[in-house]
Amino acid sequence: MPGLVEEGRAKVNLTLRVVGRRVDGYHDLESVVAFADCADRLTLTPGPELSLQTTGPLASACGETSDNLVLKAARLLGESIPNLKMGGFVLEKVLPVAAGIGGGSADAAAALRLLARLNNLSFDDERLREVALATGADVPVCLASRACDMTGVGDNLRPLSAPKMPCVLVNPCVPVATKDVFAALGLRHGELLVGVTDVMMQASPWPEEGGSLEEWVEALAAGTNDLEGPATKIQPLIGEVIAALNATDGAWLARMSGSGATCFALYENTAEAKRAADKISKEHPEWWVHAGTLS
C-alpha cells in the first residue's frame, strides 16, 4: 500500500482571551482560530512498526523524536483502539517550532487523520477526539483544521463561517515556551482573569455566514490576545515584529498568535500581503515570513 499524506496546517489565534485558571491548573480560554495555507507534510507508510523520521528545513528544531507529538498521538490511539494498524511516519517540517501556531499539534492531528484513514475510522469518531485532547490542548482544533471559536481547554469547538483572509505571518526565529508565557500571566489555581460580565460577553456571535472581510476585521479588532503582553516581556522581539507588520502598507490588524512569537497581520487582498511580506523579508532576512490566506 502506498504512503498516505496529510498536511498539518499552521493554526493562527486571531483572538485569545484567558478566562481564568482552573483548580486543576489548566487555563480556560476563548479564542477565534483560523488556519493558514502553509503546512508541515506528514506521510504514513503502513507497516508493522511505529516509527517517525523528520526531514525538511526545520527538522533539526523538532527535538528528540521520542518526545514528538506524532508518536504520542499514535500511541494513545493504539491504546484506545485494539489491533490498530500502524506504520512509519515521515514528517517534513517547514513550520517554526514553539512559535504559537500549533505546529506540533497540527502534526499530531495529521497523524490521527492518517491513522483514521488507514483503519477506516470516521474523522468524527469520538475516540479520535478523546485522544486528540489527551495529546494536547490545541490538537482537537487542529484535527478539524477549520475556522472556529474554541473555548474551555480546547475541547469546545464552534465552527465559524469566516471568509478567506489575506495575511502575513512573521516569526523572528526565537522559540517561546508556552508554559513560560502562562506562568508570566501569574494566575493562581481557581483565579479568574476577567469578570463574570466579560465572560458572558464572550458568547456574543461573530459575523454570520456571508459576513465580509471588513466585518470580520472590525469584530476581531475589538478582541485581544491576553498572552501578548506577558510573551513580549519574555521575548521583546515580538514587539518589533508587530511594529514591522504595522509599518507595512495596508495592514488592517496586527497581533500575536497563541503564546508567540509568531505574529500576523490581515490585509484587504493577497497582493498587499505579498508586498508587505517582501518588505519585511528584505528588512529582516533572518525572520521566517509567509504571505498567504487564513480560512
Rank of each mutant, 00 (worst) to 15 (best):
C142E: 07
C142L: 11
A144E: 15
A144Q: 14
A144T: 14
S145F: 00
R146F: 08
A147P: 13
A147W: 11
A147Q: 11
A147K: 10
D149A: 14
M150S: 11
M150A: 09
M150W: 05
M150Q: 11
T151C: 14
T151F: 07
G152N: 01
G152R: 00
V153N: 04
G154H: 07
G154C: 09
G154Y: 01
G154S: 09
D155S: 13
D155T: 10
N156M: 11
N156W: 05
N156F: 11
N156C: 14
L157A: 07
L157I: 12
R158A: 13
R158Y: 08
L160Q: 07
L160E: 05
L160S: 04
S161A: 14
S161K: 09
S161D: 15
A162W: 00
A162R: 00
A162K: 02
P163M: 00
P163A: 00
K164F: 15
M165G: 02
M165L: 12
P166R: 00
P166F: 04
P166I: 05
C167A: 10
C167V: 13
C167F: 04
V168Y: 08
V168H: 08
V170R: 02
V170H: 02
N171Q: 07
P172V: 10
C173V: 10
V174Q: 07
P175W: 00
P175S: 06
P175F: 01
V176K: 11
V176S: 13
V176H: 11
V176Q: 11
A177E: 10
T178G: 00
T178E: 01
T178L: 04
T178M: 03
K179Y: 08
K179W: 01
D180Q: 06
D180C: 03
D180H: 06
V181M: 07
V181K: 02
V181T: 06
F182N: 01
F182H: 03
F182M: 04
F182W: 06
F182Q: 03
A183Q: 13
A183W: 00
A183R: 13
A184D: 12
L185G: 03
G186E: 10
G186T: 10
G186I: 08
L187D: 08
R188Q: 12
R188S: 12
